[in-house]
Amino acid sequence: MSILAEVIVSALIIIGAVFLLVGSWGMIRMPELMTRLHAPTKATTLGVGGTLLASIAYFLAAEGVFSIHELLISMFLFLSAPITAHFLAKAYMHSRLKAGELPRPDGKGWSTYDKPAGAESGEAPPRDTL
């Protein structure tokens, strides 16, 4: 394995590890959940992306095979991290905040606080069960 490949793999490993550490530290440091969502969902995904790139580079340099597993994991994580953050933020909003307490984007309010379709006829269950 050439020295250039070793430097690239080591740099990617260290960048990934530092981002993972920063993400976990930010979750301790931030004051409440909506700011706390920021640290893990961005920094930790970047950290796992760094380690996955390091793994691709390592197996490409050491064994000469381009392994596709890592891309599968990173694709899955990049797709699922925003969905997780969205669900957590939505659960937090419905358990803690009223519709009037939030900033209004363009005068229309937040669609998650609207009545669901069919609520007039009484088919849909109540929105907020907490």
Binding site: I13, G16, A17, L20, G23, S24, P40, T44, T45, G47, V48, T51, L52, A54, S55, E70, I73, L77
Partner: peptide, 9 residues
Amino acid sequence: INVIALIIL
């Protein structure tokens, strides 16, 4: 997510 990175490393 940290455990995933640990397994890969």
